[in-house]
């Protein structure tokens, strides 16, 4: 029997408001190829995942986080 710690939503747990200008937060929820990490990996709840996705897309548009990793450019 493998015990896995239950993943919890970072935003619900800590009452963090998702802000598209928070570059370091957006970084944490994208992988090294700049892709949005799925809920199953991060444990984010559905509501916050939707808001996070919007925030990441806004952050990309504003060149705060990359669309693609540097080496792909």
């Amino acid at each position: 029997m493998v015990y896995r710690r239950k993943k919890t939503c970072h935003f619900c747990e800590n009452k963090v408001v998702i802000d598209y200008k928070d570059q370091h937060m957006l970084d944490r929820f994208t992988n090294d190829r700049g892709k949005i990490l799925p809920r199953r990996v991060t444990g984010t709840c559905a509501r916050h995942q939707r808001r996070l996705a919007t925030a990441i897309k806004r952050g990309r548009f504003l060149a705060l986080i990359p669309y693609l990793p540097d080496h792909a450019l």
Partner: peptide, 13 residues
């Protein structure tokens, strides 16, 4: 971004 992004949310949430 490249260094720490993948692991953190899953393991240390």
């Amino acid at each position: 971004p490249a260094a720490t992004s993948t692991d953190e949310p899953a393991t240390t949430s």
